[in-house]
């Protein structure tokens, strides 16, 4: 499984299109922290929110980084569609962890506010939960589901926009409501929102896993 995840990471690192979501994330960080971004947690929630569509984008790229023939070879080598999905999830999760680290370091360096360790840990948790939600969303609409890139983009965008509009709809609604809507952010609210986002992603990965086992 780890070898397969490393293989997917290698393929992603050789794929120029994988640079686009990374650059978008860097651009979001640059815009948020261009001047005084305000309280650390509220400021940190904005790049974290961007990690949902970016995570989905990365997952789509990971699922489409091979031609059909090579994807079949990998599938047979890994053993099942479910195991292949786990390898892809691990690969994208590793990228999500790297982006989370970037977000924490960038915030600490660029925002002129105190960043005690608990705050940094909370920002990291929000980012990781958002990345999990994003990769779950990507896993739902990526192959083996026979959706075109356009249809998958529309579906993912619809979920993201809807959860931005409806405050109780995960992954983004509760997350942004907890950190940006409530001042100062309540710890309980935040913990529930982080949990919801992570659970949302995990559930979608589970659904994709079951589908992968059936579809091969």
């Amino acid at each position: 499984m780890i070898a397969a995840a490393r293989y997917y990471l290698t393929l992603m690192s050789r794929r120029q299109t994988a640079l686009a979501p990374l650059l978008v994330f860097v651009a979001v960080l640059g815009m948020v922290y261009a001047s005084d971004a305000g309280p650390p947690l509220a400021a940190g929630a904005v790049p974290a929110a961007a990690l949902v569509p970016i995570g989905a984008w990365l997952m789509w790229l990971c699922a489409t980084c091979e031609s059909r023939a090579f994807a079949d070879v990998t599938l047979v080598a890994v053993g099942s569609g479910g195991r292949r999905l786990c390898a892809r999830v691990l690969a994208v999760l590793a990228i999500g962890a790297a982006l989370t680290t970037t977000a924490c370091v960038w915030a600490r360096v660029a925002n002129p506010h105190p960043y005690p360790v608990p705050v940094v840990v909370e920002i990291a948790a929000v980012n990781l939960a958002a990345a999990v939600a994003g990769l779950g969303l990507g896993a739902m609409f990526a192959p083996p589901l026979r959706a075109t890139a356009g249809a998958a983009t529309l579906a993912i965008a619809a979920v993201v926009v809807l959860s931005l509009i409806v405050p109780w709809l995960p992954p983004l609604g509760p997350l942004l409501h907890a950190y940006i809507g409530v001042r100062p952010p309540s710890g309980a609210h935040a913990a529930v929102a982080i949990g919801q986002a992570a659970l949302f992603g995990a559930l979608l990965v589970a659904v994709a896993y079951l589908r992968g086992r059936r579809a091969g």
Binding site: R15, E66, A69, F70, A77
Partner: peptide
């Protein structure tokens, strides 16, 4: 069947050793 060119900029030896590890 290798009916399509893979969109993979991975060296052949690295592909073979990565697949062997998998």
């Amino acid at each position: 069947q290798a009916s399509d060119n893979p969109p993979i900029r991975l060296r052949t030896d690295r592909f073979l050793s990565a697949l062997a590890r998998v």
